[in-house]
């Protein structure tokens, strides 16, 4: 299996390389469109600042390449955010796979520290969380009540073997609100999208490459996707 990691100006890409190697995969780190388009799997990881990252991707025409990928793609952390429509970070338009706008966390109490950094529990027991709008979530739906809004009891293939409450590692100041493509949620200040899925595009806000055995399971699932 040929696994490619998109090479661009974001940090912490080597963690993903190491994590894949631990699973027995030798990934290629590349910004060559032909290599990316022909890979069996593409990962779009990284930490960084959105405006700079989007600028770099556009300059190297990688945004177009990403839009045209047909194989399973996994966006991680800023990779998830850049696959959305727009982000408040640097007020920049992004790649636009997901019909969602990335927002900055607004702390409400002293305990609400931004960036959100550390381990947090996931909720994955729903293929699609049936939510109409972010406003509905913030104003009317508390995290506990979200359960009642789930209509599909299935777990997305990305989360096979992962249970509600399993912990994964997050580092972020911006978040993707709940939307129709949400496949896992986390709760920090408010419930938000911990993972998204649409067509061949999968994303995690957290870092599976840093999330111990649970993270390894998610990466293994990604490699096994049909």
């Amino acid at each position: 299996m040929k696994v490619a990691i998109i090479k661009y100006n974001a940090g912490n890409i080597y963690s993903v390389v190491h994590a894949l190697k631990r699973l027995g995969v030798e990934p290629v780190l590349t910004d060559d469109p032909a290599e990316l388009l022909s890979a069996d799997r593409v990962l779009f990881p990284g930490q960084g600042e959105a405006r700079q990252a989007m600028g770099y991707l556009r300059e190297h025409r990688l945004d177009e390449v990403i839009r045209n990928l047909k194989q399973p793609v996994l966006g991680i952390c800023i990779g998830q955010q850049l696959l959305c429509r727009h982000t408040e970070e640097g007020d920049v338009d992004c790649i636009g796979i997901f019909d969602a706008d990335v927002k900055r966390f607004c702390p409400e109490r002293h305990e609400d520290k931004v960036p959100c950094m550390g381990w947090n529990g996931l909720r994955v027991k729903s293929e699609k969380l049936k939510v109409k709008s972010e406003k509905l979530i913030v104003n009317e739906v508390k995290s506990e009540e979200l359960r009642g809004n789930e209509v599909n009891e299935g777990v997305n293939p990305l989360f096979q073997g992962v249970n509600d409450g399993d912990y994964v590692y997050f580092v972020h100041s911006y978040y993707v609100p709940l939307c129709t493509d949400t496949i896992a949620t986390a709760n920090y200040i408010l419930p938000y999208s911990a993972a998204l899925h649409k067509d061949n595009f999968y994303t995690c806000q957290f870092h599976p490459e840093k999330s111990g055995a649970v993270g390894e399971q998610i990466l293994r699932n990604f490699l096994k996707l049909k």
Partner: peptide
């Protein structure tokens, strides 16, 4: 360490 451990 980075090659070996899977936590931050």
């Amino acid at each position: 360490v980075a090659a070996t451990v899977n936590i931050p």
